[in-house]
Design a protein around this nucleic acid. Structure first.
Lengths: 244, 244
DNA sequence: TTAATAGTGTCTATTAGACAATATGTC
DNA sequence: GACATATTGTCTAATAGACACTATTAA
């Protein structure tokens, strides 16, 4: 610990938010355009410093999201993603940032707030590929957030958080396909979802049909943890052969 | 973000360490006896404040571990466990703590360092049950660390980190049984482990036998991610609580 | 009717789980 | 020999994956 004359180090605490949503069956992340230096004009995750010593991290995250993107944030469930503390990650000095992850259903285009020149959804693949360049270490944070979402889709009912209050099983499959980045067999998916007790519940009668048979509607069920889990087809994990 | 006359809040950053090991087939956690207020004399996780503004979190964790428990810490791989930021968690003021998790093979009894009156291994069940009371919110942190270890045993080769350089399959099973807290069938376990390519590699010939047939020796293989995963028998699909 | 999507059924290869049988050491 | 633990084998129920088939709407 410390002796009595020890001087607390000057370290700033910040929060960064990875907000993911689905638009046109593609995974998108919420980015702002930075209005101040450093990285002025560059894209970045919403976020900022804790404002006073009693402010909680989650409270700060909600505040920044409201300030920068004017999103209705009450319904978002923030989950701790990790701490980013590379001493050189911010040119202003030592900034330790706690990243949060949240999943949003289809939301209206956010309006720019005060601090950020612009806020909007960007396809995650354009961020990961480097086509959209992010300030600080935010690309890494986005990558970590996506990987977390992929993993959580396997073991939790997180997928329903991407959907509105009611949804079809095909819409739910769209979520899995977009986040996992791979196609799934609709028939096996349907069977697996319906056999997982408490994952989804019937919600009224059928609806929707630009064409084809109308789909039944469901809503999120009480089950949070999926057991057995949804299985993410092997893309190429750590060197396992397709078949022995 | 901030305007130019904004005063940085006085927030202290700390690290806490959950070091788990196996002793007599029971899961143990490393605790120190606090030598200073608050909670002087109580058990607590090793940890402490960042000492200067350029010190990294992992570096601080290593330093504290060396100071307080005099453990050879070079081989420990620290993994971020989470951030604990309840404004009331420390009576001295606002202390935000980053917890790390590490798994240690059987280690010698640690010797007390300078800051801590005593350091030693304590069975985790006595911590979780409340028989051993911890300072601050450290009981919660230990619980989170154990749950993380349980989950990681399913999908990673973490179990080998509990073992020495070489081990038998039965010893590996002991790890799973102790961390998961449930018995496993040795024959099915044996088959499952051996069919997972790259999990373990043969290491010399047989050895060890107080009684019974000598077991073959193995060492950790290159595989880090287990696919398909080890399956934790369902005893209660305990839900994960949302991060506050 | 056709087109298009929703939903069901069926077969097969794999595997988790239960547990018998055999191997190899010490006493 | 008895005993204890390690290792292999075998049977069965469950299920992921592939895919044919039926159902229900709009045009």
């Amino acid at each position: 610990m410390s002796d009595d004359r020890w001087e607390p180090p000057a370290i700033l605490l910040a929060v960064d938010l990875v907000i993911l949503t689905l638009r046109d069956s593609r995974l998108h992340v919420l980015l702002v355009e930075r209005g101040i230096e450093p990285y002025k004009g560059a894209h970045a995750l919403p976020g900022g410093f804790l404002q006073h010593s009693q402010e909680g991290l989650v409270a700060a995250a909600h505040r920044e999201l409201a300030e920068e993107a004017d999103l209705d944030v009450e319904t978002l469930r923030l989950e701790q993603l990790g701490v980013y503390d590379d001493p050189d990650r911010d040119p202003r000095g030592r900034v330790v940032s706690v990243a949060f992850l949240a999943i949003a259903p289809r939301l209206p285009e956010p309006t720019a707030g005060t601090d950020a020149a612009d806020a909007g959804w960007h396809p995650t693949d354009r961020v990961l590929s480097g086509d959209v360049r992010l300030a600080f270490d935010h690309r890494r944070i986005v990558a970590d957030g996506i990987e977390r979402a992929r993993a959580k889709l396997e073991h939790s009912a997180l997928a329903t958080a991407f959907c509105g209050p009611t949804f079809t099983i095909t819409e739910l499959q769209d979520v899995y396909e977009a986040v996992w980045g791979m196609p799934l067999d609709p028939r096996n998916f349907y069977r697996k979802i319906k056999k997982t007790d408490g994952f989804i519940l019937p919600a009224g009668s059928a609806r929707k049909a630009a064409t084809g048979r109308p789909a039944r509607l469901f809503r999120a069920g009480p089950r949070e943890v999926l057991y057995p889990p949804m299985i993410r087809p092997v893309d190429s994990p750590n060197g396992k052969e397709p078949v022995q």
